[in-house]
Design a protein around this nucleic acid. Sequence first.
DNA 1: ACGATTCGGTTCGATGAATGAACTCCTTGG
DNA 2: CCAAGGAGTTCATTCATCGAACCGAATCGT
Lengths: 164, 164
Amino acid sequence: MALGKDYAAQDCSLARALEVVGERWTLLIIRDAFYGVRRFSDFLVHLDIPRAVLSARLQSLVETGVLAKDGHDYVLTEMGKELWPAVHTLARWAEDHLSSEQCRIFLHAACGTRIGPDGTCAACERHVRPDELEMHAGPGARRRTDPVSVILRSPHRMLDPIRT
Amino acid sequence: MALGKDYAAQDCSLARALEVVGERWTLLIIRDAFYGVRRFSDFLVHLDIPRAVLSARLQSLVETGVLAKDGHDYVLTEMGKELWPAVHTLARWAEDHLSSEQCRIFLHAACGTRIGPDGTCAACERHVRPDELEMHAGPGARRRTDPVSVILRSPHRMLDPIRT
DNA sequence: ACGATTCGGTTCGATGAATGAACTCCTTGG
DNA sequence: CCAAGGAGTTCATTCATCGAACCGAATCGT
């Protein structure tokens, strides 16, 4: 994966994780899958990624069981969905330390509270699953004009498939 | 970083995070820094990484403020230390889903309880900082023979500098 | 029924990064 | 003064990525 050949020599589960999700583009593909992107051409236009690379990454994610292929749709498996805490934690770190404006805000749909860095809803005092979250565009959302970005700027339940 | 040129076109804090820590080897370097590795040659022997790549990664991590250079030591900054939840969450995901045996176990030093996937100590019912954790070798620890691996197999307080 | 378009890829040449070996510079030790 | 180790840099080879072009199947319009 991401490590030259593979991180075979490493006694570490982190290395194994990186073999699966550590290559260039892979985590962004997974993020998009959480956002509801499912089709090849939607990933393509939203990520602005070379077709050959997208094809290779989707195949390897299906092979490792992070995504499943359902017709022409690529959907997160249970295992894939459990990457949400990792994805969210990393995104939150960047938001808090890289002085980037928020581009997307995640609210617990049931109560409207923004989830914390650790993925808990302060109001409900519990972890919320990604499908309990609603995405809203934040102030830092740039004006990307591709159809997927436009759709994602309106409030949207996470994991709900988008249709262009 | 990890994204060809950069993920400039992405309205996303995750993309920004990946520009800083998304390249090959980078997260493993950071993991080692949490383990107490500080010197160039120790990273080199423990990660089995090309010297040129290690040099480039360390420099860029210093530039972005994840590491600070203190003499010949590379140490995590506050910002770098706050990557611990992200690193741990990802490692836990792999442990839980990639059927890898545990190689390292993290215990809350104060009470001896293993921390959960979300980084909380079940006994103390709170988040624990990395410097409150003690590393122990797990059953999956392979018999790597480099001096750094040997030192890391004995119980060790996280972030405590190792000396070969 | 038929051509045009869209979708979901694959192929391929050019470019850029990763690899590993060799080399340099600096400091420490005897 | 010489030897050795640490911390890099340089460089030629190999490998991955990029982006444009191509291909085949399904759908649409007439």
